[in-house]
Write a protein that binds this DNA or RNA. Structure first.
Lengths: 210, 210
DNA sequence: ATTATCTATAGATCTATAGATAATGC
DNA sequence: ATTATCTATAGATCTATAGATAATGC
């Protein structure tokens, strides 16, 4: 009865699978290795999850939700005095989320293409919400534009800007290391500097300055 | 002597490998499938290239050069009246390059981590050049800042901005499709709109407007 | 009785090579 | 003689399951 001591095996397998799949992707991950990481015999993996594909789908489903909702809450649930403040605060919260989950974007980006059929219903549902969020932002944004405060922009494009700026550098950690070394700093500092850079970029894009 | 008719087999294998590896990555690609795509027996693949890994390294080496040099020429070899024009023109050329090579960023991003040892010398050499390019831009940029024309910025960060904005959306074509559909357009239009968006974003980031 | 776990192995898939045969270049 | 090509197969790796045994819950 090691129940509380080291979780149950079913959960241990799920967690090991999460690590293995996130690090290596579907094709690179091996069920034998997952069992090994979970500290169980290989047969247990199939006992609880039937197949590699099935286990993988659980993980991918989870991660797709996680990443899409991180974007949604960034643009919907954020606080600030003005629309721009809310957008910027949301973007920065999303940036922090990305930094805390550095393997997440690569994993999702890679596996989505191979699992379109399975993911479509999920994506449609979440995107439907996202759709509403973006349209609401657009309406509010356009009022600022009409008052000459913000530069014209499509809200979808702003979302893509933010997500691109936040996520992409995490996909190239080795390049960041080399860049950092060349400029006498380290990857973490470079990433921290990016946060300020991204805030400046978004504000500059939106605001009409006089 | 079908020499000129359908290339030689050695070349056919290389090209088939390029497609297979770009689409599926190292782990997902199969040598049997590469031979099939090349229209040769499987044994020929090993006859010419000895091993899957060896064949893969040829492709990866090629692609790493291609993508790094696309960034370098964007920031070094571009034309324009002012520094900002040169940066923007380079960024847009890089954007077009990305659109023309949509599988490239995903492939390189994915495989770099698994091949750090083999890639390091290449990366160091190219990055050494990139280093110089960035430092030269920084000096020129700072003169504009001193004259109150440009907002303060680190050139490295601007490069990361541009590459992130250009490359990231190509990593999520399925998401672009859904977004486009929700906003009554198509992926290609969305991508075309991004080009204008990115130009605006870069200009806004750099320029001090009065 | 049911659920959890293990050992052993089948069966599929994949990379790589051995060894024979055909084509090519002197 | 050397280079190119094919057939056949070894050997490794990997997913999945069968079937026995132990633990757990009534």
């Amino acid at each position: 009865m090691a129940e509380s001591k080291e979780k149950n095996k079913e959960q241990a397998i799920l967690e090991a699978a999460e690590q293995e799949f996130m690090e290596k992707g579907y094709a690179g991950a091996k069920t034998v290795r997952i069992a090994e990481r979970a500290g169980v015999t290989h047969a247990m993996l199939h006992y609880y999850y039937r197949s590699k594909q099935n286990l993988f789908e659980k993980i991918l489903n989870d991660k797709v939700h996680l990443i899409l909702e991180s974007v949604l809450t960034a643009f919907e649930g954020s606080e600030g005095d003005t629309l721009l403040d809310r957008i910027v605060n949301g973007a920065l919260a999303h940036f922090d989320f990305m930094v805390r989950n550095p393997l997440l974007p690569r994993f999702v980006i890679n596996e989505v293409a191979n699992n379109a059929k399975f993911l479509n219903p999920i994506a449609e549902r979440i995107m439907h919400v996202g759709n509403g969020v973006i349209k609401r932002i657009q309406i509010e944004y356009d009022q600022h534009v009409a008052r000459g405060e913000y530069q014209p922009a499509e809200a979808v494009q702003l979302v893509l800007d933010v997500v691109s700026l936040n996520a992409f550098p995490l996909l190239i950690p080795e390049v960041l290391d080399i860049l950092a070394r060349n400029f006498g700093t380290d990857r973490d500092t470079l990433i921290a500097n990016r946060k300020a850079e991204i805030e400046k970029t978004i504000r500059a894009r939106v605001l009409v300055k006089q």
